[in-house]
């Protein structure tokens, strides 16, 4: 007896979906990975999930406020002597609140930052434990340019954008050329392979001017994000980031035969960096032990360098370690790409 059409139609949908291994990956495995990594970043590690800093006058000083904060279960405290350093850590999201002892106690934080609100509640709770010593609280919301969440966020968004357009743009273009069998057609001409590869990177450079230009003009003029370092240094970082991700894009597309195939690989390469490289939240969220690995990612190097240059005015010379990481990635990925690239 023939089975019901609804059954057969449903079965057809399920079977064709399961026969598309990439779809299965994106629908089932990818969200699971995402959940695991985010869970790891934001898990309650038992002791404290938010870090606050207490400003002190001298080494070893222990103001009463510090004792109270240390008693609060879900706060991690650190002690800082240098006020500039403290504000820098606040701006970079390494601490959620800066606590300045005194009467009243000053709590300096950026309410725009997601974690600051929770930390603020916990600090208030900690300080209100002993009613007889009830400390007056003065809240200082960080609004000054260069210390807001948006100021911290923008360089990361810029870095992420450079990565995305570099890898998507080049990965798709190469897969398309291969899918059209144009690559073999080019190969029977005397076209130089190096010209072919370089053209991708140069064309990215053309788009870079528009891409970054529009973003930066908007961010500085409308949002008031500072650009404290030199414009030349900033341009250099953008060009370097573009080249790094262009090379990565060539490597990602070096074997893929189809556009569908290359999409999967691209997302797989970019996903860890979206999450780890401090685009939306500081990688301080992850355990200290994995920081060296996170810092070795090309997007982390680019984001950190862009932040330091834009927010702190750090010079290119002081950013050489970050630049070194990116150059190393560029050289290694480009060489591997040349070696494994599927011309035929």
């Amino acid at each position: 007896m023939a089975r019901h059409q609804l059954f057969e139609l449903t079965r057809m949908r399920v079977v064709t979906f399961l026969r598309e291994p990439e779809a299965v990956f994106w629908v089932i495995v990818f969200p699971l990975l995402l959940a695991i990594i985010l869970g790891w970043a934001f898990q309650d590690r038992g002791i404290a999930s938010e870090t606050v800093a207490v400003l002190v006058d001298e080494e070893g000083a222990r103001p009463a406020v510090l004792e109270l904060l240390e008693a609060e279960e879900h706060l991690q405290t650190e002690v800082i002597i240098d006020r500039d350093e403290a504000e820098r850590r606040l701006a970079f999201g390494k601490i959620a609140i800066l606590v300045i002892p005194g009467n009243p106690v000053t709590l300096q934080y950026d309410p725009q930052r997601p974690e600051a609100d929770i930390a603020h509640l916990r600090v208030e709770r900690a300080l209100h434990i002993a009613p007889e010593e009830r400390a007056a609280i003065k809240n200082v919301e960080v609004k000054e340019t260069g210390s807001r969440y948006i100021d911290w966020l923008f360089p990361g968004l810029l870095g992420m954008n450079l990565m995305g357009t570099g890898i998507w743009g080049i990965g798709f273009a190469i897969a398309e050329i291969r899918q059209k069998k144009l690559l073999r057609r080019f190969l029977v001409t005397p076209m130089r392979k190096s010209s072919f590869m370089m053209a991708f990177i140069l064309s990215r450079g053309v788009f870079l001017v528009g891409e970054v230009g529009v973003l930066v003009v908007f961010a500085t003029l409308v949002l008031g994000v500072p650009l404290r370092g030199s414009l030349i240094g900033f341009s250099l970082l953008c060009v370097l980031g573009t080249i790094t991700f262009a090379a990565l894009g060539v490597l990602v597309a070096s074997r893929a035969r189809t556009i569908e195939g290359v999409s999967g690989v691209m997302n797989l390469v970019m996903m860890p960096m979206w999450l780890f490289s401090g685009v939306f939240f500081s990688y301080e969220k992850f355990p200290e032990a994995v920081h060296p690995f996170i810092q070795a990612l090309p997007l982390t190097a680019l984001n950190d360098a862009l932040r330091l240059l834009m927010l702190e005015g750090t010079t290119i010379v002081d950013l050489l370690p970050h630049i070194g990481i990116q150059l190393a990635w560029t050289a290694v990925t480009f060489l591997i790409a040349l070696k494994v690239f599927r011309w035929e």
Binding site: K180, K181, L182, R184, R185, F186, V188, T189, M191
Partner: peptide, 28 residues
Amino acid sequence: IGVQLQETQLFEKLTCFEALRLFRSFYR
């Protein structure tokens, strides 16, 4: 040599002239 392979597609958004100019650039 001049070669025409099977199933080759050119870039959809290039014009005839641009496609020929691209290929011409590969030769001395």
